[in-house]
């Protein structure tokens, strides 16, 4: 149990509490909520055991579902972005990811924004498709995905910049 593990566990708990107690009740412009708890998945260590990572992401989503009474939609969305995170990392960071020299706490703004955008968009498309679960409402899915993604991307990038760890 070293210091990094403790930081990740603390982040897991704090993000869940902030999400269910504060951010689920924002309802900006009627129905927009930012889902920033996926910061945990964004910042998970790159060399983490893949099965463990999938399991933790699933549990993270399921806890958000239990608090929000939303079935399994967050669990599915978290699971999918956790599974496809290596693809996103390879797309954004290219060679430096292959050689495992990326430090997620210390990357340029452009790359950070691209990484966050890719992950948040995937997460929100899955989330709202499953939440609404009706193809006759495809315009509503697109609208909710677009605006919520914008909201989440802005808040997530701000949080990542403001709470950057200075020691690395």
């Amino acid at each position: 149990m070293n210091r990094d593990t403790l930081i990740h566990i603390g982040r897991f708990i704090i993000l869940i509490l902030v999400q269910v107690l504060v951010l689920n009740h924002i309802n900006f412009l009627g129905d927009l909520n930012p889902y920033i708890y996926i910061i945990f998945i964004l910042l998970a260590p790159i060399n983490i055991n893949k099965s463990l990572f999938l399991l933790i992401s699933f549990i993270l989503g399921l806890i958000i579902d239990i608090f929000g009474d939303s079935g399994g939609v967050h669990a599915a969305a978290c699971l999918i972005i956790a599974f496809f995170r290596p693809v996103a990392l390879r797309t954004v960071f290219g060679l430096s990811y292959e050689f495992q020299t990326v430090k997620l706490s210390n990357i340029a703004f452009g790359e950070k924004l691209a990484y966050v955008t890719l992950m948040v968009l995937t997460h929100h498309i899955v989330l709202f498709s499953l939440e609404i679960f009706n193809f006759s409402h495809i315009l509503l899915i697109a609208k909710k995905t677009l605006f919520s993604s914008l909201f989440t991307i802005v808040i997530t990038t701000l949080v990542l910049i403001l709470f950057r760890r200075s020691d690395s």
Partner: peptide, 29 residues
């Protein structure tokens, strides 16, 4: 493992879309 967990979450999702079936994932705990 990914497919198994995805299957479980899809089951929960489908249950939540039908009345009186979503017993497990509930904030009453």
């Amino acid at each position: 493992l990914f497919l198994l967990l995805l299957f479980v979450s899809i089951i929960f999702t489908i249950q939540s879309h039908s009345y009186h079936k979503s017993k497990f994932v509930s904030s009453t705990n």
